[in-house]
Design a protein around this nucleic acid. Structure first.
Length: 895
RNA sequence: GGGCGCGUAGCUCAGCGGUAGAGCACUACAUUGACAUUGUAGGGGUCACAGGUUCGAUCCCUGUCGCGCCCACCA
């Protein structure tokens, strides 16, 4: 006997153990009775940061993937949900460094590369399993036996192979360029890792004295005013630019100014970049510290003077007074010094965007360094073509626009990072600085040997690769590439990728490029991009706001099923889901409702009957629920197939609660307590059967409780042998019976109507009332008689009687001595319905006339409208049939 | 500056050319009956605003206002 309450914690642990024991999610299983096809279906998990812990975004992402995987597994496909974790370069290095500091241990630099990396691996061994265990608690049905890590041996091999192949294709190069430099981590970062933040700063207007004249603050002819938001870069200025069309400054082009504080003579150049509308119309040019200035510098052959060190402190290229100062302090100092010299014209408040490191949250500096780049342009072209031709489809569709926009404007990808935690770049240098890209040191040596004719000592590039470089390979590196493994052949391309749209460029785009480049084939056929989980007010969840909802807390309180169901219901396309605990609570209640419905079935000995066929039941009520089950199954299936998880979840929720519990179980109670044994037996079997279908349809969303109930339902006194997660997905045909649907619908409406009248008239609960059905329509009377017990019970009527003295099809309720007439037909407002149909017909006639007029088809015009409609319908049907045939044929060809 | 999305019940959101929907909240009644983690009934909406298309618009088109997100090196 089932307990009175569902206890998620205990059940989840037990079910989880059962799944593990059975290795239920291992890929390559034999097909179940659902399909015979057993076609592979592969999803790779977006690998979470190995040092991370489960947040709501993971919960949403993995719930959706799990729904798809469980659904397809039940549909008989060979599902591989590939799990694993990401080494997450900067993030992990940061976490470990922070931990060392907190433990008062020697820092990264003190330890040195080797020892520090040992610490990171230690940390990984300690806490790397956390997120995996949390995913398991969520119910993720990954094939856990195949867990991978981006830095494990095979995947590292894939990374090297990818690098070498890119190099062989001439797509890798090293260049000294301005990069986004993160002074906190002392590494380059890619454009994508830069966040623009709006900052309230100042616009400083400085006077740069002209060379050859004596500076006089009173005489504007002795200086030129430039405006800047970054005074400290003055130390690296190598020109002042004015617009050649700007009459104020034209005469100064070719002259020089003396750079204040530094004393360097720098030219005034004419360049379109200078916008007369902005600032003073004259702009200082610092080629080594600004992307625009870099370009201006190139055009005018200007010197690039780097004034920062790796920490963004002023270096030795600057006057002694500023050396070693942090950039912020240097800024203040420089402004103060200029002020003292009378060189500050004015200071205006100014709001502008400042680039920040997305991990470090400090402003990044454009910084001149040697870095490795991938020329991704040709790869991007292929990726765009693949999306354009529909080889990979993105959902929601409008994300494809974002994808194209980014791909079309793609810049070279800076892949080197000055970190220690990551894949070290497979490049070796000789004593002259020549470099050799190689799969390993031995290969590099032999390459050097060819060049020099003798063995020369080599040194490996100390930099590591961008984390996303290895993530880009995830859909095939996890399957064994660079080996041509059977798994790779079987599961690549993956079926679907489910991820947040926030990493569309970081990850999805790069997987597309890497996949097409190495495998000559897209990595996945469909991409489903979901939103970011927000709090119930729509704000981002953040520690500072204190509005973070920890998925594990929700699981502990309401159960994993409730959380999953809540997330599924929120996953409507095209908008960020907002999560409140109230929804989780009501979905917990839904689980309880299902639990109790099962209890009811158990108490009434509703046992599954072997060989039971829902198409053969006789009682209208049973035929009705069979039809409703078919409709629900179709709705859930269609919802999941279309990635409309909210609709799918909503469909099974409504069916379970609104149809099965609220109506069906109530309607059959008279049968179950009656003495018609045949009817009773049929109904019991029907209850058990329907419940089975509910468990299956709900399983992808609520795997734990459904698996538990499935195991609990006995068949001939025995526990079921097989797991629900391996059972066949329900697909039905021919169970919907329009006549039965109409009849039960009518009964339902009569009951509702009587109930409503009771409430409106404030009939005391204890009052005895009866319903008198008036009129002499036999069909109405028959229905009433057929469902008399049910109607009496659910409408709480004392008696039902019949009378002829009233308009047809109406009824009256007798309240002790008062009598209330109730139009039975009014339940289905026939007059309104008829009016609607009449209108519809008028419209059709109208449109028809228009169409005919437009066509000017004399032949058609000559005929009566009814004939034309008939003819058109036939043509339409013939056309549709042909279309269907064509589609089927096409599908066969594809298969 | 460019792009995308969103304004529907008190709240969170579905829906979408043909009589406005759900959950939660609210009101009334019920409750030894599978379930108070419940049931029944009810109140509550010019579907942001203004034009247009249509027999008919919450839905399609245009514009306005408000909100959010993404991309962008402009002093």
């Amino acid at each position: 006997m089932l307990d009175k309450h569902y206890q998620p914690a205990a059940v989840e642990a037990r079910i989880h153990a059962a799944w593990e024991e059975a290795q239920a999610f291992k890929a390559g299983r034999a097909p179940n009775q659902s399909g015979g096809k057993n076609a592979p279906y592969c999803i790779v998990i977006p690998p979470p940061n190995v040092t991370g812990s489960l947040h709501m975004g993971h919960a949403l992402n993995n719930t959706l993937q799990d729904i798809l995987c469980r659904f397809e597994r039940m549909r008989g496909r060979d599902v591989l949900w590939q799990p694993g974790t990401d080494h997450a370069g900067i993030a992990t290095q940061m976490v470990v460094e922070r931990k060392l500091a907190a433990d008062k241990q020697p820092g990264r630099r003190d330890l040195g590369r080797e020892k520090f990396l040992a610490k990171v691996w230690e940390w990984k061994a300690e806490s790397g399993g956390t997120i995996v265990n949390q995913l398991k608690r969520l119910g993720a049905s990954c094939d856990w036996s195949r867990e991978r890590f981006t830095m494990d041996e095979g995947l590292s091999k894939a990374v090297v192979e990818f690098f070498v192949k890119l190099d062989e294709a001439g797509l890798i190069y090293k260049a000294k360029r301005l990069v986004n430099w993160d002074p906190k981590f002392q590494t380059a970062i890619s454009d994508l890792e830069v966040e623009q933040k709006e900052i309230k700063g100042h616009l400083w207007h400085f006077r740069y004295p002209l060379k050859g004249v004596t500076f006089n603050p009173e005489d504007s002819a002795t200086y030129i005013v430039i405006a800047t938001t970054r005074p400290e870069t003055l130390l690296g200025d190598t020109a002042v630019a004015v617009n050649p069309k700007d009459e104020r400054y034209q005469h100064l082009i070719g002259k020089f100014v003396v750079l204040p504080l530094v004393g360097r003579d720098i030219p005034i150049v004419g360049d379109d970049y200078s916008d007369p509308e902005k600032g003073s119309g004259a702009v200082k040019i610092t080629p080594a510290h600004d992307f625009n200035d870099f370009e201006v510098g190139r055009r005018h052959n200007l010197e690039q003077i780097n004034i920062f060190d790796d920490f963004a402190r002023i270096n030795d290229a600057a006057p002694a007074a500023y050396r070693g100062l942090d950039r912020i302090i240097a800024r203040k100092q420089i402004v103060a010094d200029l002020e003292a010299l009378g060189l500050v014209e004015k200071i205006e408040p100014h709001t502008h965007v400042v680039p920040h490191g997305d991990r470090s949250a400090v402003p990044v500096e454009p910084y001149l360094t040697d870095q490795w780049y991938v020329n991704v342009k040709p790869l991007a072209e292929r990726a765009m073509t693949a999306v354009r031709t529909g080889k990979t489809k993105m959902m929601p569709l409008n994300r494809e626009q974002d994808f194209y926009r980014w791909m079309e404007n793609i810049e070279p990808w800076c892949i080197s990072r000055q970190l220690w935690w990551g894949h070290q770049i497979p490049v070796w240098y000789d004593h002259e600085g020549n470099y050799y890209v190689a799969r390993n040191e031995t290969d590099a040596m032999s390459k050097a040997l060819i060049k020099w004719g003798k063995a020369v000592p080599l040194k490996r590039d100390p930099d590591v690769l961008d984390t996303w470089f290895s993530s880009a390979l995830w859909p095939f590196s996890t399957l064994g590439w660079p080996e041509q493994s059977p798994d790779l052949a079987k599961y690549y391309p993956n079926a679907t990728l489910v991820t947040g749209f926030d990493i569309l460029f970081f990850w999805v785009a790069r997987m597309m490029m890497a996949g097409l480049f190495t495998q000559d084939e897209v990595p996945f056929h469909e991409v489903y991009l979901h939103g970011l989980v927000r709090d119930e007010k729509g704000r981002k969840m953040s520690k500072t706001l204190g509005n973070v909802i920890d998925p594990l807390d929700v699981i502990n309180v309401y159960g994993a099923d409730a959380l999953r169901f809540t997330l599924a219901l929120l996953a409507a396309q095209g908008r960020d889901p907002k999560l409140g605990l109230k929804t989780a609570e009501s979905n917990r209640n839904f689980a309880t409702k299902l639990w109790n419905a099962s209890r009811f079935a158990e108490m009434n000995e509703c046992v599954r009957v072997k060989g039971f066929d829902p198409a053969s039941v006789k009682l209208p009520i049973n035929r009705w629920i069979a039809g409703e089950t078919q409709k629900a199954a179709a709705a859930v299936t269609a919802g999941i197939e279309a990635y409309k998880f909210n609709e799918a979840a909503g469909a099974i929720y409504d069916f379970t609660w609104g149809q099965f519990c609220d109506w069906y179980l109530e309607l059959i109670k008279p049968v179950l307590i009656g003495d018609d044994e045949t009817a009773k037996a049929e109904t019991r079997a029907m209850v058990a059967w329907t419940l089975d279908q509910i468990l299956k349809l709900l399983h992808p969303f609520m795997p734990f409780i459904t698996e538990e109930l499935w195991a609990h339902m006995v068949e001939h006194g025995e526990k079921r042998a097989s797991l629900l997660c391996h059972s066949a997905w329900p697909t039905f045909d021919g169970l919907v019976d329009a006549a039965v649907e109409a009849e039960i619908g009518w009964v339902v409406r009569v009951i509702s109507e009587v109930r409503s009248v009771r409430t409106e008239m404030k009939v005391p609960a204890a009052a005895k009332i009866g319903l008198t059905v008036l009129g002499d329509e036999k069909s109405v009377a028959d229905r009433v008689i057929r469902h008399e017990d049910t109607i009496k019970r659910l409408a709480r009527l004392d008696q039902i009687s019949f009378a002829k003295l009233a308009p047809k099809g109406s009824a009256q309720i007798v309240l002790e001595d008062a009598t209330v007439a109730l139009p039975l037909e009014g339940v289905i407002d026939m007059s309104a319905e008829r009016a609607r149909i009449a209108k519809e017909q008028a419209k059709t006639q109208d449109e028809l006339a228009k169409v005919m007029a437009k066509l000017g088809n004399a032949e058609l015009m000559a005929k009566a409208p009814e004939t034309v409609v008939e003819e058109l319908r036939e043509r339409h049907e013939a056309f549709t049939a042909t279309l269907k045939k064509l589609e089927a044929a096409l599908k066969r060809i594809e298969d």
